[in-house]
């Protein structure tokens, strides 16, 4: 079966005045339909950069990325993107933010927006402005806005990083429900091991400077997952070991 996302030997290097910093080194990865891939790694491993490349927001790299067999040249609605901050339009209400450039007077848009508001559990807040929403609610509006465009893949860049622990676990459950109900392929960049194990079907562990894939850990736990279960703890420990295991620490110049 053709993968939704095919990433082949993607490399990227930052050039500054005196320094040449390799960010990504020959990353190859496939994402199948219905996959939930989590990418985890220390800061500076290039995981967010990789996500920006997949979104088409960053075009300066070598290698090859394809979405359903077609090269990724620019951002498009097929690649939904959730930023770290919600990035809603502050002058639009919740429902208009979800519709964005589409008209709510179009009955099919109206219907889809109403369904999504139900999916992200924001009923009653259709007419609220972003400043009236909490961080978690705003991020759910952003997710609904991306889903309205029926993306082939949803790219999430540490979407819950700025939320408090309580809201974060609620949001993880909400995201899981969304994924279960519409099976959009998801790529989640995170630095939270629990989040990765709780949500994904496999975890990609990345290494920093240069960023490369260190390990791929399939998560075959049944849903709903309990963070306290033994198998969960074992997987968490395994990923932690992968993250901390460094072959040549003296090579790191920070």
């Amino acid at each position: 079966m053709q993968p939704v996302l095919a990433i082949h030997e993607v490399s990227k290097t930052f050039y500054t005045d005196q320094q040449v910093t390799p960010v990504l080194d020959k990353i190859s990865l496939n994402v199948q339909e219905g996959d939930f891939t989590a990418i985890i790694g220390p800061s500076g491993c290039g995981k967010s950069t990789l996500l920006k490349i997949l979104a088409g927001l960053d075009a300066e790299y070598s290698g090859d990325v394809q979405l359903k067999g077609a090269p990724i040249l620019r951002p498009s609605q097929e690649k939904g993107f959730i930023f770290q901050e919600h990035r809603l339009f502050p002058w639009l209400t919740v429902e208009k933010n979800i519709a964005a450039d589409l008209s709510l007077r179009d009955p099919s848009v109206r219907k889809a927006v109403d369904e999504l508001i139900g999916l992200v559990k924001l009923n009653g807040f259709e007419k609220a402005y972003p400043r009236q929403l909490s961080g978690g609610m705003s991020q759910r509006v952003a997710i609904a806005r991306a889903l309205l465009r029926k993306p082939a893949v949803l790219l999430l860049d540490e979407p819950f990083g700025a939320l408090d622990a309580f809201t974060r676990s609620h949001m993880q459950e909400a995201l899981h429900d969304i994924w279960r109900s519409n099976r959009t392929a998801m790529v989640l960049v995170t630095h939270d091991i629990d989040e990765a194990v709780f949500l994904s079907t496999r975890v990609i562990v990345m290494d920093a400077r240069p960023g490369r894939i260190k390990a791929t850990v399939p998560i075959d736990l049944p849903y709903p997952r309990s963070r306290a279960s033994r198998s969960f703890t074992e997987l968490r420990t395994r990923i932690l070991n992968e993250l901390e295991h460094r072959e040549a620490p003296e090579d790191y110049n920070i």
Partner: peptide, 15 residues
């Protein structure tokens, strides 16, 4: 940052 959003949502120049 909102211009990035407009690019991802494929806003036309007019939009």
């Amino acid at each position: 940052k909102l211009f990035d959003v407009a690019r991802v949502l494929e806003f036309s120049r007019f939009s």
